[in-house]
Design a protein around this nucleic acid. Structure first.
Lengths: 333, 333
DNA sequence: CTGAAAGCGCTTACAG
DNA sequence: CTGAAAGCGCTTACAG
């Protein structure tokens, strides 16, 4: 790879007429060198295009400067479209700290932790970033017990105390903001379109809706419905059930963009706000208002958490992106 | 990371009562050892849970066993949803060969190759896998000229000869199959919904449609339309333009799922086949038939190409996934 | 078939 | 402020 032999510290030292140690210092502790020595060495480094060999540096410092990230299996094709953006953000955030992301996969079931154990044993990574947390996710506890560094995007809601540092997006705050937005447009009956419990995130969003409605004096009775599955069809059917009720809503906050699309295309006038601001939210007419997770900030925070031994958890505020789906005229009821 | 000091070759050698060299041989050249020696050493390895330190091994063998992959920037949010699946497939394929994927980002413009150059200089990766190729993509030529190993998912259509090994999906074959499928259902006027030229892939798909129609004796005149952008709205508008023409189509093959959705929801009966089989194709009622790229096979082939100095390019056949969107009844015209 | 030795390219105490 | 030396953990010719 690359043409010919790589440039080493030795080559630079010879060129600059100093010892290898001085070249190393120029790179890692420049304040130790005299200005003119530093200038000579720096020039030689630039001329030769020298960059330290990563393996050698890692071996010596016993830090790989690599962060392990397990790519969830998408066998069913039902990807979390946000994960795409997250991975880009995570890579960029890691690079800002001179690191890279190493991808790996994990089998389901009892062997799920094996790849983590292997990567640790081989000293292939310094830390892990976790996401796609599932109910009763065993990873956080396992990693804590094995003394591994990690930071989690998402909480493990079932534990008494969340093991290890985490970053999460305040779903309750996001849905509360969605409710206030719809209320400010004149809506008085705002429904919530839920999903099967997924460990806590969905309930969290629902609580935000409930609390905001309570604060604004809006009803919630008969306005809560759950979709059996996160599909467009289930979203549509659930919305129709609400609309066919005695006191139908004029607006709706959904726990995901996918079910929000179903509600939006149910054929009746209904203001809709989704959750996640997936790429399609902007692409599908008339444009779906949605609660956007601040992925770049999540990524930066995760990387920072890896070096922070004190911080336990950080809750980030999502942002409501308003599009045409929530701007339908309110009918007088 | 991990509890306490890592287990080294020395520890295993001490435990097994042999030299470190013998332990190394047990791992890398077991046929050199006598059966009983091998058994002793293997037992010691298992008991201590030994795994070779990656940095040390990489330094010694000058191979990082890491494959660099640049995550495209998704600033506009218009991700390629297939890339998600691809990344998982690539990671899995790399692992099957004892490697991992290292993610990095690249700036736009003149500095686009800098991260590649850095990774090479640092010996951080052994090879690159390229995807998201763009018109006049400079990467293939640059990497070839710099003697770097790589394999590309997608061709650079503008070059005389594609620099370096590549894998691509036969878009023409996919669209031809879509046409034959629609024809077998009785459709006689099958349109093509194109996109702005993107370097060649879109034209390739269009040619497949054209050729298949020709072979089946079907008309193409007035049945080709291009969307200005890859959005649902543009897809719908373009479909309506076709349907409002003198001799409207009864079916349509689209260059992407997104514009296919627009055509499918244009409010008129129209059989539709999309391209890419994005996750939403299955989720959005009534279900969108779509040409699926064989991402797992693409990934495997790319990894194999990295070790193959002879193979130049591999063209893989996509698979038509039939759902309800292409099964509408044909009206007699 | 097995062992002692060299060396991959770095960094870091330790002398001068 | 600078240099000679040791050593991170492995693999690979080279002897025995």
């Amino acid at each position: 790879m690359g043409n010919g032999r790589a440039v080493t510290l030795r080559d630079v030292a010879a060129r600059a007429g100093v010892s290898v140690q001085t070249v190393s210092n120029a790179l890692n502790a420049p304040q130790r060198l005299q200005a003119d020595t530093l200038a000579t060495v720096t020039a030689a480094i630039r001329e030769l295009g020298y960059q330290p060999n990563r393996s050698a540096r890692s071996l010596r410092t016993s830090s790989a400067r690599l962060i392990g990230y397990c790519v969830a299996r998408r066998a069913d094709g039902v990807a979390n479209p946000m994960m795409d953006q997250f991975l880009h953000a995570l890579t960029a955030a890691a690079e800002d700290e001179g690191r890279h992301v190493l991808l790996f996969t994990a089998p389901a079931g009892a062997e799920a932790m094996t790849p983590y154990a292997d990567l640790i044993a081989q000293r292939a990574v310094d830390a892990f970033v976790l996401s796609d947390t599932v109910p009763h996710d065993p990873r956080h506890r396992w990693l804590t017990e094995h003394g591994a560094r990690f930071a989690s995007f998402g909480r493990v809601w079932h534990e008494q105390e969340q093991p290890g540092p985490w970053v999460d997006v305040d779903g309750a705050a996001g849905c509360a903001e969605a409710v206030r937005h719809l209320h400010s447009l004149g809506h008085k009956r705002i429904a919530f379109l839920g999903l099967p419990p997924d460990g806590g995130a969905v309930q969290d969003r629902q609580h935000g809706w409930q609390a905001a409605c309570g604060q604004l004096g809006l009803p919630t009775e008969g306005l809560l419905v759950h979709c059996a599955d996160d599909t467009v069809r289930h979203g549509r059917d659930a919305a129709l059930r609400l609309l066919d009720g005695a006191e139908p809503p004029t607006a709706l906050v959904a726990a995901s963009d996918v079910v929000a699309f179903g509600a939006l295309h149910c054929g009746r006038p209904l203001a809709v706000v989704g959750f996640d601001d997936t790429p399609l939210a902007a692409l599908v007419p008339p444009g779906l208002s949605s609660v956007r997770q601040p992925v770049a900030e999540v990524a930066r925070t995760l990387i920072n958490l890896l070096d922070d031994d004190h911080e336990r958890g950080v809750l980030l505020r999502p942002e409501l992106v308003v599009r045409a789906s929530s701007r339908t005229t309110v009918r007088e009821s």
